[in-house]
Computed example of a mutant assay.
Amino acid sequence: MKRALSILIACLMGGAVLAAELGDDGLHKTPWMRDTFKDLREDLEEANSENKRLVLFIEQQGCIYCKKMHEEVFPQPDLAAFIEENFFVVQLDLHGSTTATDFDGQEDEQRALMRKWGILFTPTLVFLPQEVPEAATAIDAAVAVMPGAFSKGTTLDLFTWVEEKRYELDNGEDFQRYHARRIQERNDVSSD
């Protein structure tokens, strides 16, 4: 019901959700991003209490691909509603000097954590499971990582794949096969 209402409101506003604005830190901000203390253990606990999945959005100032995602992909009403309904989104800065605390308890500047995790591209989305082992880092615990900017279809498919926990299924349908099937299904519907 909540998702349907979000989509209806977006459609009444002209068919698209408003594009994100730049925050004081130079990063794009959307209404469904959470402003937290960046303690990932607390963020996961809060996400779980809301029955949502934790996803980390890693971005940087001046990133043309981040801008593209925030202006062209994330404003799509069905995608924005799906993210807001199912995900607890925490934004991290690839070059940020403010601190964050990893699941293993290490507190450091965000840029140091990004180096530790081997993050090279922005945007990068890191999808977390509902339970993370105590000594694990975010990148080690991730169920999926999406480095780069993708179309709405690919982005929605990955969010859906994670939300449905398809990474746990032993049916031979990894994300690429799932995505190919979803593309075919959308093509079949549009050709009817």
Rank of each mutant, 00 (worst) to 15 (best):
K165S: 13
E163K: 14
H179D: 05
D174F: 08
T160L: 07
R186N: 09
S190N: 05
E185R: 14
A180G: 07
D188K: 13
N171A: 02
R177W: 05
S190M: 08
F159Q: 02
F159D: 01
E163W: 12
N171G: 03
L169G: 00
T160V: 04
R186K: 13
H179I: 06
A180V: 08
Y167F: 14
R166F: 10
E185W: 10
D188S: 10
F175M: 08
E168N: 06
F175D: 04
R177H: 08
A180H: 10
W161H: 12
E185I: 11
I183D: 05
D170M: 03
E173G: 00
D174T: 12
N187V: 05
K165F: 03
E173N: 07
R166A: 03
D174G: 09
R177M: 10
R186E: 12
F175I: 13
F175N: 06
E164R: 14
Y178D: 09
Y167W: 14
F159C: 03
V189G: 00
Q176Y: 08
H179M: 04
R166Y: 10
L158W: 04
Y167V: 05
R177K: 15
V162T: 02
L158E: 06
E185H: 09
E164A: 14
I183V: 15
E185M: 12
L169R: 15
T160S: 14
H179F: 14
Q184H: 10
Y178P: 09
F175K: 09
G172C: 04
T160R: 15
S190A: 13
R166M: 11
I183M: 10
L169M: 13
N187K: 15
L169S: 08
D188M: 13
Q176H: 07
R181D: 11
G172W: 01
R181M: 14
V162G: 03
A180T: 11
R177A: 12
A180Q: 14
R177E: 09
A180K: 13
R186P: 03
E164I: 09
A180E: 14
Y178Q: 11
V162I: 12
S190L: 07
K165L: 07
D174N: 15
R182A: 15
R177N: 09
D174M: 05
T160G: 05
Y167L: 06
Q184P: 00
Q184K: 14
D170W: 00
K165V: 01
W161T: 10
E173M: 13
K165C: 05
N171F: 02
V162R: 07
V162S: 05
F159G: 02
N171Q: 02
Y167D: 04
Y167S: 10
A180N: 11
R186C: 01
L169N: 12
L158Y: 05
S190K: 12
E168V: 00
Y167A: 07
L158H: 08
Y167T: 08
L158D: 03
R166C: 06
Y167P: 08
R186W: 04
R181Q: 15
E185C: 01
Q176M: 09
E164Q: 15
H179A: 02
E168Q: 09
Y178I: 13
N171H: 01
Q184W: 08
E168T: 01
